[in-house]
Design a protein around this nucleic acid. Structure first.
Lengths: 175, 175
DNA sequence: CGGCATTTAGTTGTGCACAATTGAATTGTG
DNA sequence: CACAATTCAATTGTGCACAACTAAATGCCG
């Protein structure tokens, strides 16, 4: 079974006009680079946020939730989850921690007792002032200029859309 | 205090005093898009891998570890962690699960009893054959052609390097 | 040789992501 | 009104990321 030999290393990974498909061993290596680069970048971003947000007492996902609440004031948990693509299994404990920190309040909706509305407390709103400093530091830390960042964002969003669509179709038999 | 107008008090020292500088509220929104796009893309990638790797009985981080082991055969835990930027707190339980699944073996190095060498079992090596199918599906799922992916990888790697450097300098007082 | 810093895995604790399930509230239908 | 299907948050369980700490082995020093 070790016969997976790369009989010929006809590698031309980056070459635009290369007609020859990369050999299998190269594929595994190449692909590792791509997927790994993304998760590494994601974790590196997380590390910078961790440092910046420590003073605010927020983790990065908590910061994302606060961004949504600063923008919208009050929302049901469901809506927060839709915006951030997070489900209740992630949000419920996260929101409890934010509530314990005094930054948000959760209360059952009067008109629909299944729904829980979340809104920032005064303290949570006040925190926004300090959070305003964060983006500047983040942008600076990337070493990218705004145009590059916006271009990157556009590509990533396109990637996400396509990947999400693929994940849905992709049922078992594809392997 | 909802009138948190940008009193210009915190006018950026580091930012160029661009005449059309984004207003602060915009900054928070814009920046949310950038950071969120990255984590969303990362999670979307994860979702596709989750589907593809389910048949192999691997999670995505486990897959990364197997990629390293397929390439190098046998390595101390330390080296695996260096390649993947993962520490022992992540790798130790992960490797135990891989060992429980019969895919790797861990054994203390004879020459240095502190070190633990990890190598794929025959079953682990055999799994590589099936894993060879994964990259094709991943690349297809992105909807990007190879050049675009390689370009994206280059940008992300540059981003990661810069961010990591920034995280090191960035001690508390920056906020 | 004894003592001590360094290296290396492992453990513990916190927090997030996600799948699966539960249970209550609501809505739709007869 | 009764009853089934749906919606929503919460809970449970697994796995990963990371910080902080432990413990053992090694190597260096005088």
């Amino acid at each position: 079974m070790t016969t997976s030999r790369a009989t010929a290393a006809s590698r031309a990974p980056g070459a635009p006009g290369a007609p020859g498909a990369p050999e299998e061993g190269d594929l595994l290596r190449l692909e590792k680079q791509i997927c790994f680069s993304l998760s590494a970048a994601s974790r590196a971003f997380n590390g910078v946020y961790r440092v910046l947000l420590k003073d605010l007492g927020l983790t990065y996902p908590q910061y994302l939730v606060m961004l949504v609440l600063w923008e919208h004031g009050e929302l049901p948990v469901k809506k927060v989850g839709e915006r951030l693509r997070l489900d209740s299994g992630t949000l419920s404990p996260l929101l409890k921690r934010l509530e314990a920190a005094g930054l948000v309040r959760r209360e059952r909706s009067a008109r629909d007792e299944r729904s829980v509305n979340v809104r920032p407390t005064e303290e949570g709103v006040a925190l926004r002032e300090r959070a305003l400093q964060v983006p500047r530091h983040i942008v600076a830390a990337t070493g990218f200029d705004l145009d590059e960042l916006l271009d990157l964002r556009t590509r990533l969003d396109r990637l996400t859309t396509t990947l999400d669509a693929a994940a849905l179709e992709q049922t078992p038999d594809c392997l």
